[in-house]
Design a protein around this nucleic acid. Sequence first.
RNA 1: GUGAGCGUAGCUCAGUUGGAUAGAGCAUUAGACUGUGGCUCUAAGGGUCGCGGGUUCGAAUCCCGUCGCUCACCCCA
Length: 435
Amino acid sequence: MNGNNDKKTEYVFRAPRGTEDILPEKWTFWRRLEAVGRQEFELCGYYEIRTPIFEDTRLFVRSIGEATDIVEKEMYTFSDSEDSSITLRPENTAPVMRAYLEYELYKTKKFQKFYYIGPQFRKERPQAGRLRQFHQMGIEAVGATDPLLDVETISVATRIFDRIGLKGYKVKINSIGCEKCRPVFRNILKEKLCNREEELCELCQSRLNRNVFRILDCKNEKCKTISHSMPSINDYLCGECQSHAQAVREALLEIGIPYIADAHLVRGLDYYTKTVYEITHSSLGARDAICAGGRYDNLISDIGGPPIGSVGFAVGMEATILALENVIAKSKPLHEEASLPSPLVYIVSIGEETKKKCFYLLNLLRKADISADFDYEGRSPKAQMRTANKVGAKYVVVLGPDELARGDVKVRMMETGEEIPLKQSEILKWFQEQR
RNA sequence: GUGAGCGUAGCUCAGUUGGAUAGAGCAUUAGACUGUGGCUCUAAGGGUCGCGGGUUCGAAUCCCGUCGCUCACCCCA
């Protein structure tokens, strides 16, 4: 401080826009989602892979597509000291595929299933359920084109949502064709829409050249009417895509997953082919997807690998947790649902001279895997009891000068208020029996 | 990137047409019960009303700017 500036300078740091701190009480939901996710993935034969948080920029440009918004304006791109361009990953599919190729995993075993959990980055304006650093967990089933595999991935996602107790989600599916049939449909659609250009909203008029398919899910009422009068992609799918889509629908029916066939479901990333799907939750507002996925049979060859088909999805974890909170808030009080882990034992020390002994007992219990805690603030016995109650300890061990002299402690059962004396030498054994 | 709304205590919010020391509930801390939690009662701490400027005798309140947040759009998990 140089004293020239008499204005108070406040150094208030806050989490950067579009990022958030996950505070302890929020962790219950995160842990539940992660635990259930891992369990389900592994149950279905998917193995965890972790890729770097940043990659060569070109990986994303090639895979996601040069003309997409993600690449054009939403990537955190910077150059490191060696004159190469680096990008914080905006999604995790391309990195997984890069690793698959880098280690030539297809040479030992073409078909492999991966899962990942981690942060992703897109520089967008934050909104409900949308952040700049957000978290996805997802799977990639690499090396097979069986439509049943598409359905497997959907079933993995829905089981996760079922198991975390998320009710009210919807599965929407569509086929967007392949490199053979999609261009045909695109041209026909474009031609027909150009004839009615004047009736479209301003945005859609510009979409005519940039991204015709987006017109199909425009929210403008007039555009909706027009797009509903347009032919459906389903009428233009090639034989192969047609039978693939058919097989997917039949298998969904077979295993009892309700779905909505939505011919207007489109995709923003270039690499998708054939099956695309989206799982949404109506409690979320405008950005309602909690999971999105599909098949991408050209991605691996796009980034320089052999022609190997794959399918996968990404679950938006923030969005899922938001939906979960919405659902749970309606059914029961949040504090019941989202309680922090409690210690089994809280140790109350009375007087300075007993602290050492208490600390010894604390560590004795912890070594034996019994969760325990005590007071480091030098507070009154009453205050310590209050804390014990607040953190939800089941037992309180009280050690004051009297107990110290006698070589015992008092154990208080917090539920009943009953207290029993216990020799210090017997504490460990006693708590091991209580567990 | 575009548009709209909102910034008052740790949290959720009151605050009349601008008017005196800015309030409540919850939370926190302490006491009633000086070695014992939950319930109750009492008290305390905590705010340059986001920040800066302007209008005015007087601004949390009106105006301008700025920063932040939120929602929606584009796009997307």
